[in-house]
């Protein structure tokens, strides 16, 4: 039982890293970013490529992936999303297009396949990342066996969630982000440069998704379409938790991850996913604003 809950926690951790970025961009900017899943995918490919080409340590891939995906996020915000604020459905379509572009770019190795050039680690095939030996195996604490890698995922997520919380609630940048989430017009009237803060927030959220990608690459195969399901999972977490509530996002990723793990152990992954969907539908039916929605005026 305990190890099931532990596996659930590690699933929740990945969900949380993906959903935190979505919670902020959706909550603060009213942007549905369908390309968020591709940030997970890019993060995973950064892990693949950096181990092949840089011989880099798995741990080193985490900061590299954060920086690379944050830059991707910044470029997407600057080029496309910025022009679509206040147009929810247009952001959905446009970012969906971007996600397809990114998937194909990876599949076609940025077009180099047409010239007969192949880059190891890219292309339509499946990729694998080997987790360093010190993260494999089990650790036993107080008579309980922990899978080392899953413990590592939970640890990284805890650290990044704490960092995000710190930025949001203890820094001047965080006050600006929270003010924009609650009332963007009044935030601007108080001298906050909403566009600039939004761009940086978007980049930060993308960076978190990139780290989630590195984590996933350690226990799942990496392929160009892997982001598509992640963005759906991410939005389910955000909607269940309540849009605009960071606390709700944390709890609902825990809830959905655990439900997934508990049902999957008893039956199988497919049924577990169906149950998760049913729970989300139930929540939306009875609490349309999510479990921990922000109570406005």
């Amino acid at each position: 039982m305990f190890d099931v809950i532990f596996i659930g926690l590690s699933l929740s951790s990945i969900l949380l890293l993906v959903a935190l970025g979505l919670a902020i961009t959706y909550g603060a900017m009213g942007v549905i970013n369908m390309a968020h899943g591709e940030m997970v995918m890019i993060g995973a490919y950064v892990a693949v490529l950096s181990s092949i080409w840089l011989g880099a340590n798995f741990l080193l891939a985490i900061p590299i992936a954060f920086v690379v995906t944050a830059l991707f996020g910044l470029v997407i915000e600057r080029l496309v999303v910025r022009r679509l604020y206040g147009r929810l459905l247009d952001t959905l379509l446009a970012t969906w297009g971007i996600s397809i572009l990114i998937q194909q770019a990876v599949r076609l190795e940025f077009g180099l396949t047409f010239f007969g050039i192949h880059i190891d680690g890219l292309g339509p095939g499946l990729q694998n990342v080997t987790v360093p030996s010190y993260l494999q195996g089990t650790v036993s604490v107080a008579g309980l066996e922990f899978n080392g890698y899953r413990a590592f995922i939970i640890g990284v997520t805890l650290a990044l969630t704490a960092l995000t919380w710190f930025i949001l609630y203890r820094t001047s940048a965080g006050v600006q982000v929270r003010a924009i989430i609650r009332n963007p017009k009044m935030a601007a009237a108080c001298g906050i440069d909403v566009k600039r803060v939004n761009a940086l927030t978007f980049a930060f959220g993308s960076g978190l998704a990139g780290v989630a990608g590195v984590m996933m690459s350690g226990f799942k195969t990496v392929f160009p379409d892997m982001g598509a399901t992640m963005v759906v999972d991410g939005f389910m977490v955000v909607v269940t938790g309540g849009v605009g509530s960071i606390f709700g996002t944390i709890l609902s990723s825990g809830l959905l991850g655990e439900i997934n793990a508990l049902v999957a152990i008893g039956t199988n992954d497919i049924i577990a996913r169906a149950v998760v969907f049913a729970v989300v539908i139930g929540v939306i039916l009875f609490k349309p604003n999510g479990l921990f929605s922000y109570k406005g005026r």
Partner: peptide, 17 residues
């Protein structure tokens, strides 16, 4: 249009940006 879940201090300091 004050921010209901900001403290009084946070609401005032919002202006200082």
């Amino acid at each position: 249009e004050i921010i209901p879940d900001f403290t009084v201090r946070e609401n005032i300091l919002m202006g200082s940006f």
